[in-house]
Design a protein around this nucleic acid. Sequence first.
DNA 1: CTATCTGCAAACGTTTTGCATCTGT
DNA 2: ACAGATGCAAAACGTTTGCAGATAG
Lengths: 131, 131
Amino acid sequence: MPERYRDLKIKLTPQRLAILSYLNGNKTHPSAEDIYRAVLKEFPTMSFATVYNTLEALKNKGSVQEIKIDAGKRRYDPGSTKHHHLICIKCKTIVDINKDFRLNLTDDLTKDFSILGNSIEFYGVCSKCGK
Amino acid sequence: MPERYRDLKIKLTPQRLAILSYLNGNKTHPSAEDIYRAVLKEFPTMSFATVYNTLEALKNKGSVQEIKIDAGKRRYDPGSTKHHHLICIKCKTIVDINKDFRLNLTDDLTKDFSILGNSIEFYGVCSKCGK
DNA sequence: CTATCTGCAAACGTTTTGCATCTGT
DNA sequence: ACAGATGCAAAACGTTTGCAGATAG
């Protein structure tokens, strides 16, 4: 199992492997606390320091994205592929949108800024909440 | 001056009028503390409770938007007109983008969600930070 | 061997709360 | 008159930090 993460070039401690395993393929966009609680089952001494430390390392390697959807609480998205999000404004469910929208800005902006990318948040009401 | 805010249907206390006046036309996307500090000059007894209380009331009336750019600190945007943002990832300056991008989602999503809108965050490096 | 990570607890900055008093309408 | 706002201080919340001991590479 560790081999698949070897190219991250970070120290693969048991705690980190547990975090990576929890995040792998996870589509729930968990918060730091969600991750902490999940890994706590396996490592009763797990601390938030380790969760944040690991998330910071993974963010720097580009294999985890921070999602700023929830004011006051960060949520995390595994995987390095860029994508957008659709959020139900009622239940806060987040759905990934894997589509590349080409958005062009006006010249007066591109002159003053070097644009690196964009992130789109669609909001709506899911069928469950729409009833 | 109060007349222009009468249709908000909230109690127009002097403190609230000072906050509204500070926000009116403000393009700096201030944080709660920015607002607090600005209004403090006029009302030395101003408290954060009042700032947050007022922002909450204005948010509910749709005349202030909360911007979730900065994890760990909310920023606020006066006005109800929809627009997007361009953020310098270094100095966190936020520039408004008043352009309507028509973004279409795939049918499988529009079937399960009733889409209400979208919000785009462009990120880049401003000329000041790019040097 | 040693650079880095872990775990704890304390510290931090932001936001929320409880409550007595006050005030717009 | 009274529903709702203010102001204060304390508490809550998510996140960060310092540091001693442990461990992956």
